[in-house]
């Protein structure tokens, strides 16, 4: 009896502590937990270091085969710089972060379901959205470290030069980008919660976003329909802003435009994403379909 009343007390106290600090702690704990899972597989760490360079290699070899040099007059004619190595290296470095955010965060709930811990997590006295924010925090750290590694490798292996004055504005762009991508991650989490094995849909969604983003080419080379989709994607403005800052520093002319576009798109994407997640989570719980495969 005493034990029960103590447990009740603990539960009530836990529920009463639901504030922003509790949510942040829970999100941080989820991020740390995911790092621990990854470090449990030693090969993962080695691959994490090698992956950014390995991803960049096909682009670099193809670029050299196409141009025969480190400069491209064709690129200069369209975007004003002939340094294709820097253009492509910085653009593709951002791809890792994007993939981590969309895939890692969106599929985090499915991962928990696969290992049988989703219901336990959902029973925690925290907001359901915190589970997704926690995964996002881990993916931001994971993907962000990948971006740093790829940029460092690009500097030392491919002779890419980065403008130090552009680092802080580039980080501000990343911060703005994360908000919009989080909206997409919430939408992906909805697909996963409803369709369970909705990886194919999310894969195609992610692939289209990456295709229309100007990672290794300006959007001018896309067909007109894809150019419209590209302009409506937060990823496009994130890549443009991030690359512009790191290549030209404070002299980058498109910074204000990228920030404005990201603020508008972040508001739209995050609002839609959060509303979708809340409605989906309620729908799935009502049907008792949370742990279903």
């Amino acid at each position: 009896m005493t034990g029960n009343s103590e447990e009740d007390g603990i539960h009530e106290r836990m529920m009463a502590r639901r504030n922003i600090v509790t949510e942040l702690r829970a999100a941080s704990a989820i991020a740390v937990k995911q790092w621990r899972v990854e470090f449990a597989y030693p090969l993962t760490v080695l691959w994490f270091v090698l992956l950014p360079v390995m991803w960049m290699l096909p682009y670099f070899i193809t670029g050299v085969a196409l141009t025969g040099a480190m400069q491209s007059p064709a690129l200069e004619a369209s975007v004003g710089t002939s340094d294709w190595v820097s253009y492509v290296s910085i653009g593709t470095a951002y791809m890792g972060l994007t993939l981590s955010m969309i895939w890692g965060t969106g599929h985090a709930l499915r991962r928990e379901q696969n290992v049988g811990t989703l219901e336990t997590l959902m029973a925690m006295p925290v907001r359901r959205g915190t589970l997704v924010w926690g995964s996002m925090l881990h993916e931001l750290q994971h993907g962000g470290l990948g971006v740093v590694l790829q940029l460092v490798a690009s500097v030392f292996l491919f002779g890419v030069s980065l403008n130090a004055w552009g680092v802080l504005p580039a980080l501000a762009i990343v911060a703005l980008s994360v908000i919009g991508l989080q909206g997409i991650a919430f939408a992906v989490a909805c697909i996963v919660l409803v369709a369970k094995r909705g990886w194919m849909l999310t894969e195609v969604l992610g692939d289209i976003m990456i295709l229309v983003a100007p990672m290794a080419y300006p959007i001018a080379v896309l067909p007109p329909v894809l150019q419209y989709i590209s302009v409506a994607s937060p990823l496009t403005w994130s890549v443009e802003g991030f690359r512009g800052c790191l290549m030209y520093g404070l002299a980058y002319e498109g910074l204000l435009r990228a920030v404005m576009a990201l603020v508008i798109l972040d508001t739209v994407y995050l609002t839609i994403g959060v509303l979708m997640f809340m409605a989906t989570e309620r729908w799935v719980r009502k049907r008792g379909a949370l742990a279903q495969f």
């Binding site: 682009y59 193809t62 670029g63 196409l66 141009t67 492509v88 195609v204 295709l211």
Partner: peptide
Amino acid sequence: LWQAPMILMAVAIGGDLTH
């Protein structure tokens, strides 16, 4: 979808593809 970026990159930086 995975490989199309390579073709788009070729359009952007390849020029007349002489090399």
